[in-house]
Design a binder for these strands. Structure first.
Lengths: 229, 229
DNA sequence: CAACTATTTTAGAAAATAATTGAATAGGTT
DNA sequence: AACCTATTCAATTATTTTCTAAAATAGTTG
């Protein structure tokens, strides 16, 4: 029923696809990929953020590079890693979608940590894009100033979480507010939205955070430069 | 900057996602998943088609079951395995898309094997769905009769590859023909389409085969029963 | 060019995974 | 109930992966 050439073809083919699968088989590498979905980072930063040693991080990055999922760029003394293209992000999203629907453990873990997210209203990237055009929404980037300067959604205001309280006078209650942060597992915008709601604002969170916005091709500013879809 | 709870959360979270990643890290398991995307199969069949032993196949299926990517159903003496839901298929598609765009090796391997595919016209699942409604297209299922009986696209004619020649008189040249087979790496429809074109027909192949059609929710018949989108 | 810095490589130990074989089991079938 | 059959389990061996610490490297900066 099956020819040798066909078997040989499939063996070689799936061996190649498994290179990508192997890259996805380690928790650290998944965390690195998710981190890089936010923007490029140097090895040292990746190591610190993910709580591993530099040597170990370097090895994981090597694996990711061998499977062509990430690319590098030298900046001064640093080597910055970034996702190779939008297909990598889409793959991560599919993985996340599957995990969230099929693995009860993930549901339990996120529920424990993202306690009150269920009570907060969310807006998807494309919904927000529409609302921004109409112009009746204030968009808050609640990550750190450094992250904002690195890159952010076009038209967003930098408002790191801890600065909110002192800046309420800048926020008119007449307008809708949307807050965003790093990604789907970041709680910064949850806190801000919950707080603003207690203060009488109508606030929502961007559902999947900055990476989703960026990789779907919605307009961003990177290093001060505007990049449109 | 990072709290213990946050690190602990991320460690537990990515450990779970890595369960799925690990499932994707072995070539045999990828081939099994792709096979199951066509429809459910018992262990013995999976082993034979993928060219491995039953015990080995059983172990790989065990891994896939532990990560909730496949489910089982007992039929008589057999245990049939199937994809757990459409998210598994979408993940496979993302993996395929990434591999095909980023890994030069995959391009080379598929080009060698699918020699003349580039010269054949293809039609996507949603395009075909539209054309079928308009009714001016003949749809040929060129897989085996057994596979057709198991499940097929609603409205398709069973026309196993080796029966084409003797059935040309049944195919009016006035109508467009579309042929489909197992999946993106199956060559059956390539051969049929190429042959029909030499015989003066206007024939195209369904771009990603039966699995794409099925999991995107287009109408199929499974075991003689119609299932609409 | 020398010194420095960020990153990669190497080597080695521990842990995890994969394939093989043969025995065990759970279900249906007779 | 005894029997069959398809599948799983268990034990073993070979291979691969992960991590650490130390050494090496490449590229930038002074």
């Amino acid at each position: 029923m099956q020819t040798d050439t066909e078997r040989n073809f499939k063996d070689k083919l799936y061996e190649q696809f498994a290179r990508i699968g192997k890259s996805l088989s380690n928790p650290h590498r998944l965390e690195i990929l998710e981190l890089l979905a936010e923007g490029e980072r140097c090895v040292e930063d990746i190591a610190e953020i993910t709580g591993t040693t530099i040597a170990n991080t370097s090895q994981h990055l090597g694996v990711l590079r061998a499977s062509r999922m990430v690319e590098i760029r030298r900046i001064g003394n640093n080597i910055n890693y970034r996702l190779a293209d939008e297909n990598v992000f889409y793959l991560l999203q599919s993985l996340r979608a599957l995990g969230e629907t099929r693995l009860a453990e993930i549901d339990r873990i996120t529920r424990d940590y993202l306690e009150d997210r269920a009570s907060l209203r969310a807006v998807t990237a494309s919904e927000l894009a529409d609302e921004l055009v109409n112009g009746n929404v204030i968009l808050l980037d609640v990550r750190t100033v450094e992250e904002f300067q690195e890159e952010h959604i076009q038209g967003a205001l930098s408002m790191p979480m801890e600065t909110i309280e002192n800046n309420l006078y800048n926020l008119p209650k007449s307008r809708e507010i949307v807050a965003y942060c790093r990604g789907p597992y970041c709680v910064l915008s949850d806190h801000v939205v919950a707080y603003l709601n207690t203060q009488g604002y109508s606030a929502r969170r961007l559902s999947d955070g900055y990476p989703e916005w960026k990789w779907r091709g919605f307009p961003v500013e990177i290093g001060g430069k505007r990049l449109d879809a």
